[in-house]
């Protein structure tokens, strides 16, 4: 088969897939969640002396990645499943592309919510949360259904409330440069792992 025809088939498949995945519906849900979380994050909450972060959990900028993850995960539900039997580098490239889409949507929009609701500081926490939530969605895609990985994301959001004394779990309320770097490294390695045939089979 000539190169051009192959590309045309892939393009056609993408169009069909995007219709089958009801992109309009997901975009509507996404917009609804964005507006809702922005509304919540713009309510000024008083800081509580005993646990200042408890209030911030309720902020839209914490809730946003939790809610958006479910939508994005469904939207990208097994996007390369039709091609998996004939796994080629092209499949890997499209998987990486879809991964970048997940990360970009979650990170940019949650950073945006954080910035609008609580300024630069909130924006950094939201950025981290967006990265880690995207990492959970990407990392678990092979193993769990989108709705099941959305529940895992909710658990990620909840542990910081229950186990605040364990440093690892405060990841969703506390922001520092190492956690940001950690999130970027985890997502980067997930994307790179998709490109190599040996590690690819565990991820897509």
């Amino acid at each position: 088969m000539v190169e051009g025809a192959n590309d045309f088939l892939v393009l056609r498949a993408i169009v069909i897939e995007s219709k089958a995945r009801r992109s309009g519906l997901h975009a509507a849900a996404f917009a609804g969640v964005f507006v809702f979380c922005f509304a919540i994050s713009s309510i000024p909450l008083p800081s509580i002396s005993s646990d200042a972060e408890l209030g911030s959990i309720a902020y839209g900028y914490m809730g946003f990645p939790l809610m958006a993850a479910a939508i994005v995960a469904h939207w990208l539900e097994n996007p390369v499943q039709p091609f998996v039997n004939t796994a080629t580098d092209q499949v890997a490239r499209s998987a990486v592309a879809s991964g970048i889409v997940v990360v970009a949507i979650l990170v940019l929009s949650s950073a945006c919510i954080g910035w609008m609701g609580g300024g630069i500081e909130a924006s950094q926490i939201s950025l981290e949360n967006g990265l880690w939530v995207a990492a959970i969605v990407l990392g678990l895609r092979r193993w769990l259904e989108p709705s099941q990985s959305a529940i895992c994301v909710f658990v990620y959001g909840a542990v910081g409330l229950f186990l605040p004394s364990i440093g690892v779990f405060v990841i969703n309320r506390d922001s520092n440069i190492y956690e940001l770097a950690g999130g970027i490294i985890v997502i980067g390695s997930l994307l790179v792992a998709i490109l190599y045939p040996r590690t690819r089979k565990f991820l897509i």
């Binding site: 849900a29 609804g32 809730g63 939790l66 469904h74 709705s147 909710f154």
Partner: peptide, 11 residues
């Protein structure tokens, strides 16, 4: 649809 249902439950 679950894309609406799960966020609604969280909200």
């Amino acid at each position: 649809h679950l894309s609406f249902a799960l966020p609604a439950v969280i909200a």
